[in-house]
């Protein structure tokens, strides 16, 4: 089995129930095709970088799952047909995954958000004294 993740955007004017319905629907698609949902993470409402279907905001949802390639095809077909989905993106994470090693967790909204706080600091070159280094190289 392969491991995929699909990040998709749900239309911002959807209610709690609709989000729930979306969650059930797409998890059902995966499990219905012998896939396995590893995590389903609603990342909340975020503003989009550009308007999609005249919307400037959307609920981002990240679904991590295992399955064959057909699962992806079916899932994406369903997303294309569903008006509540603005956009989706599927990425393959691993080629060969033993489904036994990944437990199917359903209600698990929080998987530790890996904050990369290192962004702010400039990458300082380890050799700060470039001039000296250059000289020794060339002389």
């Amino acid at each position: 089995m392969r491991r995929y993740e699909t990040l998709f955007i749900v239309t911002p004017d959807s209610s709690e129930e609709e989000l729930k319905a979306v969650a059930d629907k797409f998890q059902g698609v995966v499990t219905g095709m012998n896939g396995k949902v590893a995590s389903y993470d609603e990342q909340g409402k975020k503003s989009l970088a550009y308007n999609v279907k005249k919307q400037s905001k959307g609920y981002y949802v990240l679904m991590d799952y295992l399955g064959q390639a057909e699962v992806v095809a079916e899932l994406e077909r369903n997303m294309r047909l569903d008006d509540r989905i603005l956009k989706y993106l599927t990425v393959k994470l691993a080629d060969q995954v033993d489904p036994a090693t990944v437990e199917a967790v359903k209600p698990k909204p929080k998987k530790e958000a890996e904050e990369t706080e290192v962004i702010e600091e400039e990458a300082q070159p380890p050799e700060a004294q470039e001039s000296e280094e250059e000289e020794t190289e060339e002389d």
Binding site: L7, L62, V91, Q124, P125, P126, E130, E134
Partner: peptide, 30 residues
């Protein structure tokens, strides 16, 4: 040679320098 060169600061790939930073499309902040 040295005079002609306007000393480009030797840059080091920050991801090589710090392998803990993961490149992820879900992280627009980075």
């Amino acid at each position: 040679r040295r005079r002609r060169r306007s000393f480009p600061r030797r840059k080091v790939c920050r991801f090589c320098a710090d392998s803990s930073v993961k490149i992820d499309y879900k992280d627009p902040k980075l």
